[in-house]
Amino acid sequence: MRKSTAFLLFTLGNAILLVLLLWSGRYASGEARAMREASRVLVQKLQLTDLCLFTEARYTRHPSMADLHSAFQDHPLALEHFPSGSLATPPRFRRERP
């Protein structure tokens, strides 16, 4: 087999695999969809406000409920010390009075 044929088959195979993965994701992810629905129902029932992603600090557990100073609660120049604090940045949209 020519090397170019082998390469083109390899590329075509990968491209087909990628398209199949993207296509199957739209239709065949039953477990993930069931999880989404179960979470949505619970959020509505208990009136929850945040996803349970980072449980180490209260301002990363409920970032949408946190105030801007939560991460620096010890004193104004305190350094943020929780690793997830570098992922969960403070909310930008606030209607607090200055």
Partner: peptide
């Protein structure tokens, strides 16, 4: 609480 709802309720 159901395993399926962990993303909202894991630590509740």
């Amino acid at each position: 609480l159901p395993y399926a709802s962990e993303l909202a309720s894991s630590d509740l």
